[in-house]
Amino acid sequence: MRQTRPRLFTARLRRTALTTGLAVATLAAATAVATPAHAVSSTLTCPGVIVIGVRGTNEAAGSGGGTYHYASGGFGGRLNLTSSVVTETSRTARRIALKYPATAIAPIYPISQQQGTVNLKNLVTSLGTTCSSATRFVLIGYSQGAHVIGDALASDSANRIAATYRSRIAAVVFFGDPTYRKGEPYNAGGAPNTGTWPKGAGVLSEFNSRLRSYCYTGDKWCQNAADPTDVHGTKYQTSAVQTAAKNFILSKL
């Protein structure tokens, strides 16, 4: 009897530990099911949303884009919301930085900008072909990056993305677009003038409800102004502008 009781006691401890462990595991599983699984970025080739960022002239490059593009990628310093959109959307999402020169010289701006437009068209076409229509796109560009996107979407562009893929673009955001035209319904920021190289009126009307073009008074490029306080270089990375743009995008997803 002296040996039996310790054995029974040990067996009870083991059963208690097993029961406790199962309870903890069950609680953890229940918690995992209750936690939304959407608030994380996806490494899938074809998630629900692909956010493409196009940096501005001379912004720092980094990793991003794909092997089928020219020059370097990177999001620069004004496209932080690409990350916020990916983590805050209710859908699976990933972000890609377009690879293109993003320079004003070597190569000069027109060559760099055109290369960016061609690269963007090729990128969206490639991803659109690879992924089903369930995958939507978001395009965000700052300065030259906005110019690049605009030329890939405009009705008068020779490098326009095909209609079948344009229809899958859920939202577009421009910051400090040098081709800004006053009076367009998608404009935001209250800037009163046109930009350095204003686009034709209505060439982006297909995107009136899906586009926001942020431009502010005094901006050197989207207002063709002197800009002594560097509105173009500082305004678009402020939390107010980034949050407004992010919320617009999320409302379209």
Rank of each mutant, 00 (worst) to 15 (best):
A170V: 08
W197H: 01
G202K: 13
A191T: 10
G176C: 08
R166I: 01
P178T: 13
K182T: 15
V172W: 04
G200A: 15
G202Y: 02
G183F: 07
A171R: 02
A170N: 09
N193Q: 12
F174R: 10
F175G: 07
G200I: 05
F174N: 14
G176H: 06
P178A: 11
Y180N: 08
V173G: 08
G202M: 10
W197I: 11
N193F: 05
Y186C: 12
E184H: 03
R166A: 00
N187A: 14
F174V: 06
G189T: 01
A171M: 04
T179L: 02
T179N: 13
P178G: 10
G200V: 07
V172K: 03
A171Q: 01
G183S: 11
K199T: 02
A188Y: 05
A163P: 00
G183Q: 06
A191P: 01
A171E: 04
I161P: 06
A171L: 02
D177H: 12
T194L: 01
G176M: 06
D177Q: 11
A162L: 12
A162E: 14
V173K: 09
A191V: 05
A163G: 07
G189S: 06
T194Y: 01
G190S: 07
G183K: 07
G195Y: 03
K199Y: 05
Y180D: 02
G200R: 12
F175H: 11
Y180W: 14
T196S: 14
A188V: 15
D177I: 08
E184Q: 14
P192C: 13
T194H: 03
A163L: 11
T196V: 15
G195V: 02
A163Q: 11
A188P: 00
A163Y: 01
G176F: 07
R166T: 13
R181H: 12
A163W: 01
S167T: 06
V173L: 08
A170R: 03
N193Y: 07
G183D: 09
G202T: 09
T194M: 04
F174Y: 15
R166K: 15
P185I: 10
G176Y: 06
G183V: 11
Y180I: 03
V172T: 12
E184T: 03
G190Y: 05
P185L: 09
K182H: 13
E184A: 09
A162H: 06
P192D: 09
G202E: 06
G190W: 05
P198T: 13
V172P: 00
A170Q: 09
Y165L: 00
G183A: 09
Y186V: 10
I161M: 11
G190F: 04
Y180S: 04
R168T: 01
P178Q: 08
N187K: 09
S167C: 03
T194Q: 13
G189C: 04
R181V: 14
S167V: 05
I169R: 05
R168S: 07
Y165T: 01
G190T: 09
A201I: 11
V172E: 03
V172S: 05
F175P: 02
F175N: 05
K199C: 01
R166M: 04
T179M: 12
Y165M: 05
A162V: 08
A201Q: 13
R166E: 14
G190P: 08
K182I: 10
G195T: 13
K182R: 14
E184P: 00
F174L: 07
P192W: 07
P198A: 12
A171I: 02
P198M: 12
A201G: 08
P178I: 12
Y180V: 02
G200P: 02
W197L: 13
A191E: 03
F174Q: 08
G183T: 09
A191S: 12
K182Y: 10
P192L: 08
